[in-house]
Simulated assay, not measured.
Amino acid sequence: MRAFASDNYAGVLPEIVSALSKEALSNSHARAYGHDDISHEVRLVIQEIFNSSSDDPSPDVYFVFNGTGANILSILSCTHSYHAVLCADISHIICDESTCPETVAGVRLISIPTDENGKINIDIIEEKLDRIGDMHAAQPRMLTIAQPTEYGTVYTINELKQLSNLAKKYNLYFHIDGARLFNAASSLNCNLRDITTLVGVDILSLGGTKAGLMYGEAVIVFNQSLIQTNGNTISPLKYRHKQVMQLASKQRFIAIQFLTLLKNDLWKKSSEYSNSMAQLLKKRLELISEKTNKQLIRITKPVETNAIFLEIPKDWYEPLSTIFPFYMWRIKNCEVRLMCSFDTTENDIDQFINKINELIQS
């Protein structure tokens, strides 16, 4: 089966498989729970990638099993149970992580309306902050955004700085859900530090699975107050890491994947390719409309990473998704989402477009 449903449907990068196989078959033992040499090495690599200068405090890294675990660990590290987290109304954290943030972290999620491109703006956020200090209201403590957004659109560096400055103005932690952060960096043609460290992000959920790992994500902590173990720390992450059951005993098998992905810019090669496949699919879809002179297909969002949102005739959904599974986004207007992955091929796109042409002619 081939799919445009999600980059979670894709397999594993060959380089990752090779690295995992080599480590698994090495017949060597290693210290558990992140005390192994590979985990140490990848922490140094991450610090080198994300530090803006040698004088900067080094970010800390916590490897977890999945994206929800990364987001929950991030929330718990910054909040108490009387706090609130501000997030986009279409964000993964409020739409696709069930009630995990409320149940496990015990916080209130406050949704912020987004614009047509899935972004939130400063003015709307500030409207939600007028009860700071009111004992009868959940107290905002974290602002979280997805980069890229759930629509695959990308916050510019300037937009990130504005959001970060707003968070600091109101004493909020600034968190990025970076499940597809590599795609955003490739879209902006920038370094990873440009959209994290240098814009003032406090804590980051860095995606691995959608980038081609077998499993595993990372929580990268830039704000030193969240790392220190003195009495002023809200919740030292190493204790939360264990508490939320995200501490892997054989952590080296997550670490070796990130080490492989980050060294020699494999992440960049993978994300640039999936972004380029989305652009190719977009062009092929637009060409159909040009040739038929019919508005049977309408691309609804800017294609900036590896996601395409489009409206199609309702009777197309079943025959198309049976061959190439993809998600229905809005039933009312039959808006669907197509995702390209590191292993999407031109042949996949050809077959998908051919099926659309068949449906047009039938």
Score class of each variant (00 low, 15 high):
M1S: 15
S6V: 02
D7G: 04
D7I: 02
N8F: 15
E15W: 07
S18K: 12
E23I: 06
L25A: 13
R31E: 14
A32H: 13
G34Y: 10
H40C: 09
L44N: 15
I49S: 12
S52K: 14
S53R: 07
S53E: 05
P57I: 04
P59F: 03
V61E: 08
Y62A: 01
N66D: 12
A70S: 10
I72H: 02
C78T: 00
H80T: 01
A84V: 02
V85T: 00
L86C: 04
C87M: 02
I90T: 14
I93Y: 05
I93S: 01
I94A: 01
E97N: 10
T99C: 14
E102R: 04
E102H: 08
R108G: 00
I110T: 10
I112L: 06
D115L: 01
I120G: 01
D123Y: 11
I124W: 02
K128W: 00
G133L: 03
G133K: 04
D134I: 01
H136Y: 09
A138W: 04
Q139E: 05
Q139G: 06
T144E: 01
Q147S: 04
E150W: 00
Y151R: 00
Y155P: 02
E159G: 02
Q162L: 11
S164K: 07
N165T: 11
N165Y: 12
L166I: 02
A167N: 09
K168W: 03
Y170W: 08
Y173E: 00
Y173D: 00
F174W: 00
I176Q: 00
G178F: 00
A179M: 04
R180S: 12
L188N: 08
L188H: 09
N191W: 03
L192K: 13
I195N: 07
T196G: 03
T197P: 07
G200E: 05
V201T: 12
D202G: 04
G207D: 08
A211I: 09
L213N: 14
Y215D: 08
G216T: 02
A218T: 05
V221R: 02
Q224C: 08
S225W: 09
S225T: 13
G231P: 02
G231L: 08
P236L: 01
L237F: 08
K242W: 05
A248Q: 13
S249N: 14
A255T: 09
I256L: 10
Q257D: 05
L261S: 10
L262F: 15
L262E: 12
W267A: 06
K268F: 09
K268N: 14
E272G: 07
S276C: 12
A278P: 08
Q279N: 12
L281K: 03
L281G: 05
L281S: 06
L281D: 07
R284F: 10
L285G: 06
L287H: 15
I288M: 13
N293E: 12
K294H: 13
K294F: 13
E304F: 00
I312N: 10
P325G: 11
F326A: 05
R330F: 09
N333V: 07
M339H: 11
F342I: 03
F342M: 06
D350Y: 11
I353S: 10
L359M: 13
